[in-house]
Design a protein around this nucleic acid. Structure first.
Lengths: 115, 115
DNA sequence: AACTTAAGCAACCTTTCGGTTGCATTTATT
DNA sequence: AATAAATGCAACCGAAAGGTTGCTTAAGTT
């Protein structure tokens, strides 16, 4: 079984996973911090959240699974970095959806004017 | 207490609610069907999903709450339509995030070249 | 008036989610 | 060698999510 999976037509499954990962404020805040382009250790990302390290660790795994962050081990710490890939897929999905909507509106408009 | 809420800086809370609503395949499929620009009754949207009418009804409420669809009563049926508002907010959020990321990369690049 | 269709409401069930605590492990530090 | 720091893993918990069934109500049909 093969699958087409180019950037112009994101797989719905992927999209749902990415959007679900974005659908939580704690995770959106983590992403915002990671957008500085540098890698951060878990303790560091935990700081100021009011949550435990394990909670943050779980959130980071969710983000990683969605392709929104990358992780790398460095000595005793695992550091996380922003991954633009997930974002681009989300944007692509919304763009395609918008385009479909616009096209439908246009068809509707033409149909009405046809009278 | 007042709040700024323009399209250039979407409120994170809103964003999380919208993304969470998009983070489910059943709902993405419903949205895809609603992108034809026309209104659909619940029974109609239920058809072909393999789920019950009530399940679909709940999903539609989630979408409505996120500003992704609108509903209107017409006789004994309530009909749902696509609402571009939620989509635009989601797109705006991702755009701002991307821009921040790009800016951070640029700063990093400049910093390195400064050597 | 009788019947059918479209929905809403509410209770209930199971699974997932967001979070915590406790303990073991690995990698610095002193 | 002994201690401290950063994690990972696993069990556990309460709340929310996704779904179902049953019953009521409102609006069309015949």
């Amino acid at each position: 079984m093969s699958q087409v999976n180019n950037v112009y037509s994101p797989m719905p499954d992927d999209a749902a996973i990415i959007f679900a990962a974005l659908g939580d404020n704690t995770r959106l805040n983590l992403l915002a911090r990671l957008r500085d382009g540098q890698s951060h250790a878990i303790v560091e990302l935990t700081d100021g959240t009011g949550l435990t390290r394990q909670a943050i660790s779980k959130h980071l795994h969710v983000l990683e699974n969605a392709g929104l962050v990358l992780s790398e081990k460095s000595g005793r710490e695992s550091r996380y970095l922003f991954d633009a890939g997930g974002f681009q897929k989300a944007q692509a999905y919304l763009d395609v959806a918008s385009a479909q909507w616009d096209a439908a509106l246009l068809r509707l408009k033409d149909f009405i004017e046809e009278t």
